[in-house]
Write a protein that binds this DNA or RNA. Sequence first.
DNA 1: TGCTATACCAGACAAATGTCTGGTATCATC
DNA 2: GATGATACCAGACATTTGTCTGGTATAGCA
Lengths: 224, 224
Amino acid sequence: MSPRTPPGKTRDQIFRFVRDRLLDGFPPTVREIQDAFGFRAVQTVQAHLERLVTEGRLAKQKGKARGYTLPTGTPERPATFFVPLLGRVQAGDLNAAIEDCEGYVAVQQRGTELSRTRLPQEGSSAHHHHSPSQGALFALRVRGESMTGAGILPDDTVIVRSQPTADSGDIVVALIGDEATVKTLRIQRNQIILQPENPAFDPIIPEPDTCTILGKVIEIRRYL
Amino acid sequence: MSPRTPPGKTRDQIFRFVRDRLLDGFPPTVREIQDAFGFRAVQTVQAHLERLVTEGRLAKQKGKARGYTLPTGTPERPATFFVPLLGRVQAGDLNAAIEDCEGYVAVQQRGTELSRTRLPQEGSSAHHHHSPSQGALFALRVRGESMTGAGILPDDTVIVRSQPTADSGDIVVALIGDEATVKTLRIQRNQIILQPENPAFDPIIPEPDTCTILGKVIEIRRYL
DNA sequence: TGCTATACCAGACAAATGTCTGGTATCATC
DNA sequence: GATGATACCAGACATTTGTCTGGTATAGCA
């Protein structure tokens, strides 16, 4: 029999082990934990895991292999999913651009977008299509210096939530003619103004029906 | 028998399903995939998975439950892992800050950092500690306006690679006294200067041995 | 002393899950 | 038509893995 450890200490180490494995994307089995700690009985591990669950530090799916997870919805591990990084957006055809994207970017669910939570159980249905419907996310590389005043530099990546309208003051991606552009949206007297955040650029007041709002920028990233 | 699908299409959807599940941190079983797609035979799924592996789109651990993983970072789909988001960094004790972090941020491997890949197989050993050793990543929330000129605003999140030194011109996180700060590093005549990117702030020329470079900023994020 | 809680062990059972063998059907190509 | 490739099905088997029952030992406490 292995030497006794102070109450709670082994359990704490087990928790970290499991947590690390979960963050690595590969949940451990009870026997893997057993081996890692050198226990000679599975039950030892299960007792610890059971307590970790009752303490709320872990969640489990009964009977499932590798069924331990971090409790859902905790800031410890927000849901993560992939959004397509679009190369160029041609006139209106967002669907095509999404099908034919440059790659995918990992985005984490944030507090305000609880609506589109995707639980592991729901999964993706078999014939699920990426669609730029209301609420879908995509990523876009920024061109030009028109938004430097808002801390958006050329070559930054913006994460965009598709929506046909936005509030005044939101940073949006709009399609003017054939080109997608990032600007601050201003609405004055029912008129749409696309406002650059750089004194060297002039506001754009698009003719009606020549401008489509693709969505609202919800995140900005820069890779150095 | 279900209707036939065009060659490769079903497989592509299976790949996405598996990939999404992996990013959610819970690899699927073959039977879960089977159910999700409505197949009446497990073998159907396994044939697809086998091909995905030979095509290099998936990797697997033979015989293990939920044994499918994404292959180590291809440029198309870079490896994604979670780095700790530190609350406050107290004097020198980065280890403690990492142990006691606010949460985790999903970061994708980028071209230059091939060195520190952590494979699922290596796993964590039982008594493995997170250590901010050379190359480890962590995230930090930016305070203050001293870097607005570089497009880094208050409350932005920076992703940092731990390293004890950096090149002149790099944006770094440095520990001065008790406080962690983000600045541009300048080295002139063997002297270290921490340069704000905001005319309202003065450069910091730290006394020798009162300044530790925690690491280099490799990514910046802003959530709107 | 007895009681309870904790840490751990031994061995078995049962469910989940990976793997296999052998089949049908459709499509394209020679 | 024959051939090969692909998509799919049916059912079984074997391993992995979760779960259970019953046990020892140590520590703290009334």
